[in-house]
Nucleic acid binder design. Structure first.
Lengths: 338, 338
DNA sequence: AACGTTATTAATATCGTTTTCTTAACTATG
DNA sequence: CATAGTTAAGAAAACGATATTAATAACGTT
């Protein structure tokens, strides 16, 4: 069943040349005669030769492998990032190996170390880590290029690809205030020790304050990006004496939790309460009513991160960047429009 | 910045032993004195040694890498499979490298060849390929264990992990007939040259026939798993003289397309038309009304496939299996229940 | 005391590449 | 025609690990 692998030696022998010559041909180097080149290529084709990558890696000290470390592949946001990264690097002839951290800080830490020990050429990381020492020391010590997506943390010598969370949140809330005249706006927020949560809340508050509406702490529910907690939060919000007129969900997961409760109780959107979400996914526009959101950026984010990483791998030495993507509003019916 | 990598030689020197001895210690082999073992481990720790995997692979002729080939990571169904596979194999100390085929047969073919040439130890494949020669010849020639998920194709010496599509479709339709008395049931189907599409249609037809309802070809729309085509199909169905009482979407993507049309036109579910879907994802239960579906199996599928593959990698020689997962109905309101 | 046995370590070969380093042959130049 | 320069190809070394084989030490047996 399993035959002996064809090596360069076999190809060389078949073509009647030395091994290094065969190597030179297959790597498209100069200084080989056309006759020999032809013979070697022909032999390689005939024998169906495929190079042994581990030998090549060993010699060349490069693996052509990229590490992608994310909290959850089965989350639309992250899997879209992975899609972009895979597409970009596949074309460049690099493989990506995937690490799923399950939102566990220790697993993330282990994943980073593992990736480094496997000599990946670069890492794209969607971090949930609060302890940045590991990251910092690995970057310092091994000099592996690192691009962090979605969350800003305090680490040097790293590129970031982020969403312009503050302004985006701001835009959503201003729409509610300016167009619909709402004043009682609640939000279901992510955790505040992640910049993507913190900044979104910042934008929310800024929009209120700029428009002379006092921030009401009761209207802010932290649901840690989770459906079940958002469900609970929605229940609490609707059982208040001073019910909000609108609920702003800071990601799509929490939107799902929120809508589950609303549908269960027969609360009408947007008549009884308006609903907004940050992320726009396919199903958001298929909801009844379709939900107002911001344009999708995950695909773009993956692509941008990949591009940046690629340039670093190829030795670009420029200042470390912090790219902010700024999606536009996608107005649908759940906010009360139309 | 980037220091010289620490090799086993350095460790050996530091510990004052030979290289092979250091190797034996780190691989937990017998025939080393406790004193030496301690010295080597200590040296390795002090120098922060990490093995060079390509060297190890070269010598051992094993890569500890699994290939996962799927049409689209950013599709919930497939990313959930990936999640299961990653979790399983991470624990076994194996990496997974991801190939996204973008639903393109040629890319899939290339991915398989690439995976093989990278000497992955096994492959998990969600295929859309109609030309099975490539698969067959690779399995034959290289003897790499292969587990195919979601679609049955005509290939020998391969394990399958599938959904019991015929019976599941049957269950859904029978529910519509028996409980709700519907007779005019349309379906939006996947392509029929994939078993997952063909078998679902088979179950649909069987349910009708077994209950004495003639199959009406006009009620069968092929939408190739796509949102846009499902949108179009829904439009066609609702513009028929003899409108269906219920629409059965064979996957969640097509459900989204279908619902988009229904919501846009203000068609009431389930009063004007009942709706069913095959796949159940988080958002399906957050829709208004929540949509009746079958239990999720994607996570389970990934795990099962990984287990099977792992056993093959470890040399299990038993008969090749065809595992069928059989999810139960999840009855919600979109079918007219409650 | 001589020998065999066993536990521990070292020396060497090997995996499949690519990178020097050489050497040979050919070309151009005066 | 001599000499330098260029092109083409091979020989040998290297990458970092492990497997195989050989060597040594310690020990018990007779």
């Amino acid at each position: 069943m399993k035959f002996k692998n064809i090596t360069l030696k076999d190809v060389a022998k078949e073509a009647g040349v030395s091994v290094p010559t065969a190597s030179r041909v297959l790597n498209n180097e100069k200084f080989v005669s056309d006759a020999v080149r032809e013979r070697v290529l022909d032999a390689a084709r005939r024998l169906n030769y495929t190079p042994e990558w581990s030998a090549r890696s060993l010699r060349l000290r490069k693996t052509d492998v990229i590490g992608v470390i994310i909290p959850n592949v089965a989350d639309y946001f992250f899997s879209s990032i992975v899609l972009g990264v895979e597409k970009f690097f596949r074309e460049k002839g690099k493989d990506i190996i995937l690490f799923n951290t399950s939102n566990d800080e220790r697993i993330e830490e282990r994943a980073i170390k593992l990736a480094v020990s496997k000599r990946v050429e670069g890492i794209i990381l969607a971090t949930i880590c609060r302890n940045h020492n590991v990251i910092e020391s690995l970057v310092e010590e091994f000099g592996i290029p690192l691009v962090i997506v979605d969350n800003k943390i305090d680490v040097k010598n790293v590129d970031f690809v982020l969403c312009d969370d503050v302004n985006c949140s701001f835009k959503l809330i201003e729409h509610l205030i300016n167009v619909h005249g709402y004043k009682k706006i609640a939000c279901i927020s992510g955790p505040l020790d992640e910049s993507s949560g913190f900044d979104k809340l910042l934008g929310y508050k800024k929009a209120l304050i700029d428009n002379g509406i006092p921030v009401k702490e009761d209207y802010i529910k932290i649901a840690y990006w989770k459906k079940s907690k958002a469900y609970e939060a929605t229940r609490e919000l609707l059982s208040m004496d001073n019910k909000p007129e609108a609920i702003y969900c800071m990601n799509a997961n929490m939107l799902i939790g929120c809508l589950r409760y609303l549908n269960e109780k027969g609360v009408k959107v947007p008549d009884d309460v308006a609903v907004l979400t940050f992320d726009d996914y396919d199903y958001v526009s298929a909801l009844n009513p379709p939900v107002t959101a911001l344009e999708r950026i995950d695909l773009d984010m993956g692509l941008k991160a990949a591009e940046l990483l690629y340039r670093r791998i190829n030795g670009e030495k420029s200042e470390y960047k912090e790219i902010r993507i700024s999606p536009e509003l996608v107005i649908r019916k759940s906010c009360g429009c139309k």
